[in-house]
Amino acid sequence: MSEMEDKTRTPRQDRSIKTKEAIVQAAMRLFSEKGYHQTNTKQIAAAAGVSTGSFYSYFIDKRAVFIDVLKDYNDTLQARVEAYMSEINFHNPDKHALLTHLVDSLLLSHEVYIGFNKELSIMYLSDDDITQLMDAQYEAGRIRTLQYLQMGKDELKITDLEAAAILVFESINAIVDVIAFSPHRISIERLKSELVSMLVGYLYI
């Protein structure tokens, strides 16, 4: 830990916790609207309703708050996904309906992060710490996918669950990102329908 990092405040009282949360939320909005490189600490502090000096008592620089924003993004996204997934009956005989609900749940989880996700794609390629954080999130997603496959393994025709979990996670993740964050030439419903048909044909007897 650097000397500057050691001097930043770890909030313990409610007021300090709320101040730091306000800075993180303001940074998320600005990074999403303006981009990382077009946002500075003075703008973040102003958007959070705090002084620039107060900002630096919690974060050593803009990069530090971006990493906190990313951690909050990951935690919130994971909580949303888990909440939606808890509603799914993995023993539903209608596998098309089951997987359609899964894809719709992931799309709803991504909706509020469109602007930030675009900026995150840029930062992923330019900052090793951010790359590591995102890679850890992806690996957690692959592990969770494996756990869900194991829950319904008696109905699956595939035998290598670990390899299948990677294929399923990467396929769903890629197409959900295309639907949520990229322009596309055909309708969302057609993309979802083909994705679900592909997965049903691959996974189930």
Rank of each mutant, 00 (worst) to 15 (best):
V24G: 00
I114D: 09
I143E: 14
M151A: 08
D75S: 15
D135H: 09
M198R: 07
D177N: 15
I175H: 02
Q38F: 06
I205N: 13
T39H: 08
S187F: 00
D129R: 08
L125D: 05
T52M: 00
L98K: 12
L195F: 04
L133C: 06
R190L: 11
H96R: 14
D127N: 14
N117D: 08
S193G: 11
S86P: 01
N92W: 00
L70A: 03
L30D: 10
Q38D: 15
F181C: 06
R63F: 05
I186Q: 13
A180L: 05
D154S: 12
R190T: 10
M134H: 05
L99H: 02
A27I: 07
V178I: 11
L133A: 06
D127S: 06
S32W: 06
D135E: 13
S105C: 12
M4W: 00
L203G: 03
R12D: 00
Y138T: 05
D68N: 09
I44R: 00
I186K: 11
E189R: 10
K62S: 07
S105I: 11
T8R: 15
E119A: 08
E33Q: 14
Q132L: 10
K20A: 14
E194S: 09
E189F: 03
R80C: 09
I179V: 13
Q78C: 05
E194L: 11
G115P: 07
A83G: 13
I186G: 02
L70K: 04
H110Y: 15
F116K: 00
M134V: 04
A180W: 00
L156H: 07
V65E: 09
R63T: 12
V24Q: 06
F169D: 01
H96A: 13
V168A: 11
I175M: 13
E21K: 01
D127I: 01
V112Y: 04
F66K: 08
T10I: 14
Y138H: 12
L199F: 05
R29M: 09
Y56C: 04
I172N: 02
E119G: 12
E170W: 03
D75G: 07
D154E: 15
I158K: 01
K157F: 01
L98H: 03
A164S: 14
H184R: 15
V168F: 02
G115N: 10
M4A: 12
L108D: 11
D104M: 09
K153N: 04
V112D: 13
T159H: 11
D94N: 15
A140D: 12
T52E: 10
I205M: 09
K95N: 05
T10S: 09
D177P: 03
D177M: 08
K192W: 01
L107E: 00
I166F: 01
N40E: 08
I60M: 12
T10H: 10
A97P: 04
V168T: 14
E194C: 04
P93S: 14
V112F: 04
I205P: 15
H37S: 12
G115M: 07
A164H: 05
T100N: 12
I122W: 08
